[in-house]
Amino acid sequence: MHSKAYSRLGVFAWSPTGVEPKGLIVADFAQYFDPTSANVSSSIEFLPIDSIYSSPRPVPSISVPIQYRFNELSWSYSASSAHSLGIVAGGTEDGSVVFLDADSIINKSQANILSAQRVHQGHVLSVAHSQDSRWLLSGGGSGQLLLWDLTNFSTFSPGKPNYPDQIKMVRWNKKADQIAACISSHRCSVYDLRRPGAPIIEFGELGSGCDWNGLSWNPTDASSLILCSQSDALPLVQRWDLRFATAPLKDLRLHQKGVSAVDWWEYLEKLF
């Protein structure tokens, strides 16, 4: 395996299954600021997979100016004539959730904004689409969680959390389309869209030392997920089972510094 050099302070989303050409959509990161830079413009780029494989220094095939900078991108597949390469959604620094047509970026070199609604308070730190690409979740300040219909970009709240903390990450269950979870610094909240209202489960409160930063659902078990804390004072990874959410199944404290991201490898999930 050879390393590749593509340097940019940005956020990205891989092309979903069913979309050709394969590659990355990359946009400027909202939480970076260089006071010495004379260039304050933003852009969104497409980095084709062919360039990644063939060159040690891959370069984008498309770079399009855009007025937004993003905290996270989510690229969902929509098998419709209107959006043949899917929809790219992003959470911005001004509270907007922006939806872009991927085909316009890749084939027309245009940032075709399908919808941009400023409905969150503060930064929208996380966005994620459901496994069936029908819904998008976005999380922002004051515990605000919004559910978006990707067929018409209408939005409503799936329920109110019990605590008004800033939502740092949202993720859909990989086996049950109606289940989603979000994390704030001190807890994880799980929602069942069949039961609107408060979260069905909340857990992970560990006191002032914890700072949850990453969340990942088990790819084969709908009741299991892992969390990680980015706090240097409490750098841990925990595995939880929603059926027994009074305490974690596993509590791993092997890191010396805070853990910034966590994910499953499907073939080793039984060994965790």
Rank of each mutant, 00 (worst) to 15 (best):
M1C: 10
M1P: 09
K4D: 01
Y6L: 04
S7F: 12
G10Y: 01
G10R: 03
F12D: 13
P16Y: 00
T17Q: 12
G18V: 11
E20L: 06
G23N: 03
V26E: 05
V26M: 11
A27T: 03
A30Y: 00
A30W: 00
Q31D: 15
Y32I: 01
Y32Q: 06
F33D: 06
P35G: 07
P35W: 08
E45D: 09
S54K: 01
S54N: 14
R57V: 13
S63T: 03
Y68F: 13
Y68T: 02
E72A: 14
S81Y: 08
A82S: 12
I87Y: 06
V88T: 12
T92S: 14
A111L: 05
N112D: 10
R118G: 09
R118Q: 15
R118N: 13
V124E: 05
V124M: 03
L125C: 08
A128C: 15
H129Y: 07
S130W: 08
S133D: 12
R134Y: 07
W135E: 00
S138C: 07
G139W: 00
G140W: 01
L147R: 03
T151C: 04
T151I: 04
S157Q: 14
Y163P: 01
P164A: 09
M169T: 13
V170K: 02
R171E: 14
A176G: 06
Q178H: 13
S185C: 07
L193T: 04
R194T: 01
P199C: 05
I201S: 06
I201N: 07
E202C: 03
G204D: 00
D211C: 10
P219I: 06
S223R: 11
S224N: 14
C228W: 00
S231D: 09
A233H: 11
L234R: 02
L242D: 04
A245R: 03
A247E: 13
P248D: 10
L252S: 12
L254S: 08
H255M: 06
K257N: 15
K257E: 03
V262M: 05
W264E: 06
W265A: 09
E266H: 04
L268D: 12
F272I: 12
